[in-house]
Amino acid sequence: MENAQTSSKTTKLKLDFKDSKYATGRRKTSIARVWLKKGSGKIYVNGKLYNEYFASENHKMQITRPFELINQSTGYDVRCNVKGGGPTGQAGAMVHGISKALVLLDESFKSTLRTEKLTTRDSRAVERKKPGRRKARRSFQFSKR
């Protein structure tokens, strides 16, 4: 009985993504490899459904936004491998990758997604810590005496 439960957790989710478009999305220190094809609207992230992978409702809304903008929320299946960074960076990287893959699939989506700035990489990242400072910009407390 116990072996049956553990074996179901260890089996890799096999998805058929032949005839799909591939794109890479990036945000902060996260990288998302995205495969997109016509389907029923399922979104898989690292082998899990995106509802299970992301806890925040904000991130879930963010991921489905490119599909809502092109009025096809259930028209495509997505398989995505994400690594690096935290949930916000990973969600942003997925949005970037999905948008790029949609443009590869159909050029007519480009203007819609571009006006919402989803095809452009968001280059903002954490500023590095400088020597002689407590954080990136914060100084140590000044002592007059």
Rank of each mutant, 00 (worst) to 15 (best):
G92P: 05
Y50T: 02
K12R: 13
T88W: 00
D106Y: 04
N46Y: 04
T88C: 01
G86A: 02
K18E: 13
K144P: 07
K83V: 02
N3Q: 14
Q141Y: 03
G132T: 04
P66G: 09
S40E: 11
T112M: 07
K144G: 15
P131C: 04
K28S: 07
M94Y: 01
R137Y: 14
N81C: 01
Y50S: 08
H96P: 04
K42V: 00
P131V: 01
S73R: 14
T112N: 05
S56D: 12
T29K: 02
T64L: 15
T120G: 04
P66I: 06
A125V: 15
R124L: 06
Q62C: 08
S56N: 15
A4G: 01
T112G: 01
G85L: 02
K100L: 15
L13Y: 05
F17G: 05
T115N: 14
K38I: 02
D19S: 15
K100P: 08
R79A: 05
S99P: 02
G84M: 00
I63P: 03
R128K: 12
S8L: 14
A136I: 12
H96M: 07
F140P: 01
T74P: 03
N46D: 11
G39A: 05
R114S: 14
G92W: 01
F142V: 03
Q72D: 12
V103Q: 02
E2Y: 13
H59Q: 13
E57L: 11
Q62M: 15
V126Y: 04
A136G: 06
G47H: 04
T74F: 11
